[in-house]
């Protein structure tokens, strides 16, 4: 690992001043960044440890729940308010990584984690995300794990998070502190599609800090389900994941939220399928129809055509579980 300086500022202002300097990176849990630094994929000159900032709390707010950016993944997954109000988030978190890593990884760090595309990780390979302009090794290479939606000529990588898929479905808002104050960003606008700048994973500016999340109250707690399909039963990244949330009254779907993981450069919200479900009876036939709508525009590469079948089947299965029909 390249040598670097390490600082641990005691307040937010000092953090903001430190991260504005070139060559700096924030470290929180470190579970992804230290890994990337060992691989030589990221090589900051200076790490800014933000663990002294008081951003660890999970607390009720008037219209929902506030989660601090430094809340640990395990802490959020086990939190009683989260389990009661947003079981989808708890399920998604527990589907990710291992118990050890969830004890290290923070909410903000989970959002900032990089793709696990093997061409991104291997510094001997071309990768527009790691080294812009070198090309995409995955497009013509081994691309079994890669995107079927929203990719570009420059990058076909997928975002690896489970937590983010649930947060996209739950209409969360990201709280971002900059030098000029706090701004709020819809969670679904936080991550980016690769376009011509795949080196940018998200819309956080270099001199900004994620301070927390807000999740608005909803009526989905009774009918939500996070399905993760992977190569082994646990501790693997998603081939496909689906966050499904339904508000069902007398068998009729009043409202629906759907998002998919493992299919795009960002959590992939399925708004067309959500619209289709609204007002319809909660039946497997309707779920299958929603899944077909959700798949419009999907396109596979050499090794990931299985996702074109696995994705709609997963959507149907997740909705069926969410509705209690499984």
């Amino acid at each position: 690992m390249k040598q670097f300086q390490y600082v641990r500022p005691a307040n937010q202002q000092s953090v903001l001043a430190a991260i504005a300097q070139p060559g700096t990176k924030i470290i929180a849990g470190g579970s992804n960044l230290v890994d990337l630094m060992k691989h030589g994929v990221m090589a900051p000159d200076k790490l800014v440890d933000i663990n002294k900032l008081p951003l660890r709390n999970i607390s009720g707010i008037s219209n929902g729940l506030h989660i601090g950016a430094l809340a640990l993944n395990s802490q959020v997954a086990e939190d009683q308010q989260v389990k009661t109000k947003f079981p989808l988030l708890s399920q998604a978190l527990n589907a990710g990584a291992s118990a050890q890593l969830r004890n290290m990884a923070t909410v903000g760090g989970n959002m900032m984690q990089r793709t696990r595309c093997p061409y991104f990780y291997d510094t001997a390979m071309p990768c527009n995300k790691r080294a812009p302009g070198t090309g995409c090794g995955a497009k013509e290479g081994f691309n079994r794990m890669h995107a079927i939606f929203g990719f570009s000529d420059k990058c076909i990588a997928v975002h690896p998070s489970d937590m983010c898929v649930a947060l996209a479905a739950l209409d969360a808002t990201v709280l971002i502190q900059g030098k000029k104050g706090v701004r709020k960003l819809k969670f679904t606008d936080f991550h980016r599609l690769p376009g011509v700048t795949p080196e940018l994973d998200n819309n956080l500016a270099k001199d900004e800090l994620i301070t927390g999340l807000e999740i608005p109250n909803n009526n989905f707690a009774q009918h939500s389900y996070y399905l993760k399909v992977r190569d082994r039963a646990s501790y693997a990244f998603a081939l496909i994941s689906v966050a499904a949330a339904l508000d069902i009254h007398n068998g009729i779907i009043k409202d629906a939220r759907l998002a998919m993981g493992g299919v795009a450069h960002k959590p992939w919200r399925l708004t067309a399928a959500e619209q289709l479900l609204k007002g319809k009876p909660a039946t497997v036939a309707n779920f299958e129809q929603a899944a077909q709508v959700a798949m419009q525009g999907a396109k596979a590469f050499k090794d990931n055509a299985f996702k074109l079948k696995m994705a709609p089947a997963s959507i149907t299965e997740a909705l069926t579980h969410a509705a209690g029909l499984a």
Partner: peptide
């Protein structure tokens, strides 16, 4: 593995299990 994939390095920090290979020593100050 030294990359947080195998768990052989698991220790407890303040009672919680973590992968010590992905924990910078300075962060257990």
């Amino acid at each position: 593995c030294d990359y947080g994939q195998c768990g052989a390095c698991t220790v407890h920090v303040d009672g919680h299990r973590v992968n010590s290979c992905l924990t910078l020593a300075m962060m257990v100050d």
